[in-house]
Amino acid sequence: MPAITFQDFSYQYPSGQAALENIELQIPEGSFTVVAGPSGAGKTTLCLAIAGVVPHYHGGRVAGRVTVAGLDTRIAGLAQMAERVGTVMEDYESQLVCLTVEEDVAFGLENRGMASKDIMIRVKEVLQLTGLEGRGKLEVSALSGGQKQRLAIAGVLAVQPAVLVLDEATSALDPEGAADIYRLLYQLNRQQGMTVVVVEHDLAKVLPYADQFLLLQDGKLAEAGKPAMVLTQMRQHRVFTEALPPLWRLKLGLEESGCGPLGDWRDESDAVAELTGRITGREMGVKESA
């Protein structure tokens, strides 16, 4: 069952700027979806449409329908949407509202009327998950940019939404920090069935985890499907090729020069394993005897 459905959805901001046009899309429940595309392609608007912030907060003109976890976003209010969809936007600092780290994570839970002892347990759990354990009493202003980004994610995870939407949620993190966050999202996705939608410029960071890539261009859905298919089409159709991860530039380059076909590499170790097998001839032997 799809967690999120876009049916011929179009949206114009009140300024008249068209942001999304005729989006037809399904995001399956429990999937890990990555939204890619050049700046200004509509990625952030797509996230806001899932959260219901578009059109409820921004106004503007809407056509078509977005359904999230069974709710029509045009009909459901923002508060109702927030029960189901957790969002961390690019401007993560704007969603930190309390003085201390602990208070900030507890904020959403308090608003839902959770008992304070349960809140304490949940806050502790979430701080540990996001690598902020021991920092609960710190003032938010004392955190580094990367730590604030983790805190914004912690605040959203605390309320355990069915759908988690992150718009460039690791842009301020060092490579290890970003990898930690994506590993955590993947773990929540697989273990708890949380539907995850992320916008990420660096596709290599999310390639190991993604079930689906969506490529937006000028407000339209240019490609959608399994990561391997979308990456291959980006190369073949010369669409946004500068975003192809180096790993896939190597794979597709080798295939084009007649050294293929090669597997759908998720990370460098996949590449090393297959190339080693091919070069030493071992993998061929296995295949032939199989």
Binding site: D174, P175, E176, G177, P245, P246, L247, L250, E268
Partner: peptide
Amino acid sequence: WGLSEPAIVKI
């Protein structure tokens, strides 16, 4: 150090 080996270097 908060660095990662670039993909092509790693391969």
